[in-house]
Nucleic acid binder design. Structure first.
Lengths: 193, 193
DNA sequence: CATTTCGTTGGACAGACCGTACATCCAATT
DNA sequence: AATTGGATGTACGGTCTGTCCAACGAAATG
C-alpha cells in the first residue's frame, strides 16, 4: 500500500494493454493446429513480453487460463443470451438461447475445446468452467419458469434440464459441428415428446 | 531377432502380468479424487515396478494412455453392443446400443473423463479416441440401415447420425449423470419427430 | 552344466517447464 | 528532485519426461 496513492491513468491503461496482448497471444497459441504448445515461455515471447510480466499479470498458468475464459466470453458475445429472456414466445426463447451459445462457441471453437480439456488437469480452471455450465442450467431453468407450457413431456423437471444442458453443451455443439438449427429441433422434440 | 527363437510361456505371461499391473495402477490413479497425479514415477512406484519397466512396456506416456483405453474397453464390456445388432426390433436395437455404451462408461466414468481431457494434449491418444467415436457412428449407421423405418423425421441421414452421436457421446452421458433411459427417450423423440 | 536371452532394475543425464527471488531500468506521478 | 509501479533479465530449485547403459537374475536352450 502506498502512503499517498499513485493513481494513474496512463499506467493503468498501459498495463491493461499488455495484459490484453498476452491474452490474445495465448488465444492464438491455443487456436493453432497441432498439439498446443501453451507454455509461459512461448506466450511471453510471442507477446513480446518478459516471462516475469506474465506472472505479474496473472500469477500463474492457471490464472492465465481463467482470464482467457473471460476473454473468450467477451469475444464470443455471450451477452447475446440476454435476448432470449425478453422473447415473448417460448419456442423463440429456447431458439435464441441455444443459438447464442452456439455462436459463442463457434467464435473460438478450438480454443474452447482445448481449454475444457486443460480443465481436466487444473482445479481452478475446472471450477470456472463448472460455474459457467451451472449458469447455463440456470438460464434454461429460468426459461422453463417463464414459459411453463414449453415442456409438455411430463418428464421430471430436473431431467428435462439435464437433457437441455446436454444439447446445449459445448461438446454437443462440437459433435454437431455447430449446426445450431439441429440442436434447436432436437430440444423442441425432447420438450414436446 | 534371435537366431534361434527363445519362445517362452512363463516369461510372456510374467511380462503380461506386470503390464497389466501397471495399467491397473494407472487406472486407479486416474480414478482418484483431486487433480490426477499421473506421472510415470508415481505409477511405477505404486505398481512396484521400476520406471524403466513402464517405458519398456509402453514406450511413452502416450503409449500408456492408449493402452489404458483398450484396458477400459475390456473392463467396461464394450462388447455388449453386439446384442444390439441381433435385436429383431429397431427400438430395442437403439436401446441396447445406447445402454451398452452408457454401462461401458459408467464402469470407469472419472477415468474416461480424464482420459478424454488428456487427449487434448496428446495427438496419439486423440487419434485413438476419434477412432472410437467413429466406430460408434458406424454402429448407429448400421442400425439405421437395418431398420429403415426407425428414422421417420425426414431429416438428412448424416444429421440424424450427428444427433445420435451427440446423445450417445461420453460427454452427454456425463452431463446426464448416466441416466441411460433419458438418453434413449431423447433419441427416440429425435428419430420420430 | 554352461550359455544365451529377456524382462527388469538402478543410476545418471539432458531437456522442458513451472514458479520464485532479486537487482535493475524507465516512465509516469507527486 | 524524489517516489512509485510496471517491465526486464538473470538465476535458481523443483518436477517430470525420455534416453542411455551397466548389471542382475530367472527362464530357456544346447
Amino acid at each position: 500500500m502506498s502512503p499517498r496513492g499513485y493513481h494513474s491513468e496512463k499506467r493503468q491503461t498501459a498495463a491493461d494493454e499488455t495484459r490484453r496482448r498476452i491474452l490474445e497471444t495465448a488465444r492464438r497459441v491455443l487456436a493453432g493446429r497441432g498439439v498446443p504448445q501453451l507454455t509461459i515461455d512461448s506466450v511471453a515471447a510471442q507477446a513480446d513480453v518478459s516471462r516475469q510480466t506474465v506472472y505479474n499479470a496473472f500469477g500463474s498458468k492457471s490464472g492465465l487460463l481463467e482470464a482467457l475464459c473471460d476473454h473468450l466470453a467477451e469475444r464470443g458475445r455471450i451477452d447475446r443470451i440476454a435476448a432470449a429472456f425478453t422473447a415473448p414466445d417460448g419456442t423463440d426463447a429456447i431458439t435464441l438461447f441455444l443459438t447464442a451459445f452456439y455462436k459463442f462457441w463457434a467464435t473460438d471453437r478450438t480454443v474452447t475445446r482445448r481449454l475444457r480439456g486443460l480443465a481436466t488437469l487444473d482445479k481452478d480452471l475446472d471450477a470456472v468452467i463448472k460455474a459457467r455450465n451451472a449458469r447455463q442450467r440456470q438460464g434454461f431453468a429460468a426459461l422453463l419458469d417463464r414459459f411453463p407450457d414449453l415442456d409438455t413431456s411430463g418428464r421430471d423437471r430436473e431431467q428435462t434440464l439435464d437433457l437441455l444442458c446436454a444439447l446445449g453443451s459445448f461438446e454437443t455443439f462440437d459433435t454437431l459441428d455447430g449446426q445450431a438449427a439441429l440442436a434447436v429441433t432436437a430440444a423442441l422434440a425432447v420438450l414436446r415428446q
